[in-house]
Simulated scan of single mutants.
Amino acid sequence: MAQWCDIGVNLFSAQFDADRAATVQRAAQAGIRNLLLIGSDLAESQLNITFCQQYAGCYTTAGIHPHQAANADTGWQQQLQQSLLQPEVVALGECGLDFNRDFSPRPIQQQVFAEQLQLAKQHTKPVYLHERDAFATQLAMLQEQQINHGVVHCFTGDTRQLKAYLELGLYIGITGWICDERRGQDLQQAVRYIPADKLLLETDAPYLLPRTLEHKPKSRRNEPAFLAEIARQVALLRGCSLAELEAQCWRNSQTLFGFTTSLAAKG
């Protein structure tokens, strides 16, 4: 039985409202051993924590996405610290900078990001990083705070950007973007340069349905059960076997996040 880990699932997207538990069950049937739920704000992080308390093999991040930075309540730092104490929380994020949409003013994004980086170091949690059209600024902030423990979530950049993140010691999360023959060409080149011990796979479900998936759902919704298609493309591009990739990604997830138990409802 395969033992994959999906290190990026937006399980409390409204797209999963009708079948959240069934989605987890399908993931387990597809050989997914662990799910890492993504917290984009403190409310979603708490929903994730409560869900993870009901399902073994589910873990979560806790943090504030740059889109939500301007909406952070007074005292958010204390609230986040309380979340970070929960055993289900294995990383701080999704945090970072997004200068593509600028849903939050850039100075506020940078302030909230900087404070989250400090909290991550204080609590010895890996950071779960988001970045879009803000590479130079984000890299400078990571260097300034000497961040070397975390993962670049949904990396879609080129080889130059990849190498800069790797120099910091960060892991790289690869999504179905790599299955896109139109937009994924830079990533298809860059993935060859990721050291085996720094590679992680994620669906970013319900987003980024792999375009190479043979039987696509009519809803166009991505889900963790489709992680194997991303793995297949990555293995082809890297010239390795699926078994090698599976074993290495499992070791990497254990090292970074401390995954132990397998997917199953508790009780």
Rank of each mutant, 00 (worst) to 15 (best):
M1V: 03
Q3Y: 07
C5P: 00
I7S: 11
G8Y: 11
G8P: 10
G8T: 09
V9P: 13
S13P: 02
D19Y: 03
A22Y: 05
A22P: 03
T23I: 02
T23Y: 01
V24R: 01
V24T: 15
Q25I: 10
Q25G: 00
R26L: 11
A27K: 11
L35W: 04
L37Y: 02
L37Q: 10
I38G: 02
G39W: 12
Q46L: 05
N48Q: 13
C52I: 12
A56E: 11
A62N: 10
A62H: 04
I64M: 01
P66G: 13
A69G: 10
N71K: 15
A72M: 00
W76E: 05
Q82W: 06
S83T: 06
L84Q: 13
L85F: 00
Q86P: 05
Q86V: 07
P87G: 10
A91M: 06
L92Y: 01
L92T: 02
C95D: 02
C95E: 06
G96D: 15
N100I: 00
D102E: 14
D102N: 15
P105C: 06
Q109I: 12
Q110H: 05
V112P: 01
F113Q: 09
F113G: 06
A114C: 04
L117I: 05
Q118D: 02
L119N: 14
H123G: 01
T124V: 08
K125R: 13
K125W: 10
K125H: 12
V127D: 09
V127K: 10
A134I: 08
L139F: 12
A140S: 13
M141Q: 15
Q145A: 08
Q145R: 14
H149W: 06
T156L: 01
D158W: 10
T159Q: 15
T159N: 12
L170F: 02
I172E: 03
G176L: 10
I178W: 08
C179R: 07
E181G: 04
E181H: 14
R182K: 12
R182W: 00
R182G: 00
R183T: 01
G184A: 09
G184D: 04
Q188C: 05
V191D: 01
R192W: 00
D197P: 03
K198L: 00
L200F: 05
L201Y: 03
A205Y: 04
A205G: 10
L209W: 12
P210D: 13
H215D: 07
H215W: 04
H215K: 15
H215P: 00
P217F: 07
S219P: 02
R220L: 13
R220K: 14
N222K: 07
L227Y: 05
A231G: 11
L236D: 14
R238N: 06
R238S: 01
S241T: 15
L242R: 04
E244L: 08
L245R: 11
L245Q: 10
L245I: 06
E246S: 14
C249W: 03
N252T: 09
N252A: 03
Q254I: 09
T255G: 03
T260V: 11
S262E: 12
S262Y: 04
L263R: 08
L263T: 08
A264T: 12
G267I: 09
